[in-house]
Computed example of a mutant assay.
Amino acid sequence: MTSSQFVSQSSVPAILVLEDGRHFRGTSYGAQGTTFGEAVFTTGMSGYQETLTDPSFHRQVIVATAPHIGNTGWNDEDGESKQIWAAGYVVRDPARVASNWRSRRSLDEELQAQGIVGISHLDTRALTRHLRECGVMRVAISTEVLDPEKLREQVLQQPAMAGASLVDDVTTPEAHVVPAEGEKKYTAVVLDLGIKASTPVRLAARGIEQHVLPATASFEEIDRIKPDGVFFSNGPGDPSTADGPVEVLRQVLQAGYPYFGICFGNQLFGRALGFETYKLKYGHRGANQPVMDRTTGKVEITAQNHGFAVDAPLDRATETDFGTATVSHVCLNDDVVEGLELRRDGRLVGFSVQYHPEAAAGPHDSAYLFDRFVEMLDASKNQQNPEGTH
């Protein structure tokens, strides 16, 4: 297989039908068949491979707002997991040529190989505007049922994302260890709620050995490892359904383990601190979301993928069972909570962000948060061992 190849364009008709009856006709892209999910749009101009393989997109049909998709093909290195998790893919103009020195096959071929039903050559701008106005909703793509009313009947029978518990579908089946890169400095327990492959790489690069546990792990399993800190990953579904991990996190905080959470891990941190979560109208998905770190005043451009958020006050601190909680990061587009901090006796003991600081495919403005985790572990170690003795 060469790194540059022409991509055959399908002429098989396909249809996309939303639960409110709006429909769009186009042509098949990827596998043929019928698929269902929640229609969401992502504004990233690049990184479609990382997006499609992100477990947080489980059971969602992704609408690409960038019009030209597939030009760099598909390689064997950039996946964020071992499979495509998206339920379907919607693009306007598939690339006629896939060309990149690492490309091994076209995006269309990979979608076919993994059985992912997609649709192309439709007005994704109109579809995106509709989702912005009406909110994300259930959807179907089909090459089999081309009657919009009949397909809509099937769409209305599908479960909604609100109330969906999906973490067990994407978590690791068994515990495993990711070694530190170079000298080992710390040990962390990582609760895999749908972790992206780039995250352990960022932690390992900072000398952190990671014991990755399934989402069903108990506090006793975590405590048995005696980690220096605990990390909760990103993941799919409604955080209000994750009562088990929330209770485990409360025990983690009660025991005094330093905590860092990303995305779903931010939402569960919020719940553990006593806040509620809620569903956003159309969410934040893409690589261009502006966020302010309120602790430094710095504005960063972030990669995000979430449809739920934490309901915490922006204008005041909140006293919790574990210390004082504040909103540390906020979205500059809509004031959605993008991060939380927990301090005890003035010392940082836990923090989280709603976005993805590992930012595979970029941007990398937020990589400092992994350093902040290490600094928190340093402070915790010095607090426990002020004289430097063992």
Rank of each mutant, 00 (worst) to 15 (best):
A164R: 02
N234I: 01
R250L: 05
I208M: 14
S28K: 11
Q49K: 09
E220V: 03
I84K: 10
M137G: 11
S328K: 01
G88R: 12
Q112G: 04
Q354I: 02
K279H: 06
Q251I: 05
L348E: 02
Y48I: 15
G261C: 09
T216N: 15
E319Y: 03
N100A: 11
V310A: 14
L156Y: 08
V61Y: 12
G270S: 12
E247D: 07
C331N: 11
T320A: 09
T171F: 13
H356R: 06
A312E: 06
H356N: 01
T143G: 11
H130A: 14
P290H: 03
N305C: 10
G307R: 07
E209T: 00
G350S: 04
K226N: 08
T187G: 11
R294E: 00
E153M: 10
L193D: 02
A312D: 06
G115Q: 05
W101D: 06
D334R: 03
F36W: 02
P245A: 14
V374S: 15
V246I: 11
E338C: 09
V337T: 05
Q49I: 03
D76T: 06
P159D: 02
A204V: 00
F308M: 08
S233A: 08
L203D: 00
P258L: 05
A204W: 00
R152L: 05
S233M: 07
Y89K: 00
Q254E: 13
E174Y: 15
P67Y: 05
V190M: 15
L377E: 03
Y29N: 01
T320S: 08
H68L: 13
A86Q: 08
K281D: 00
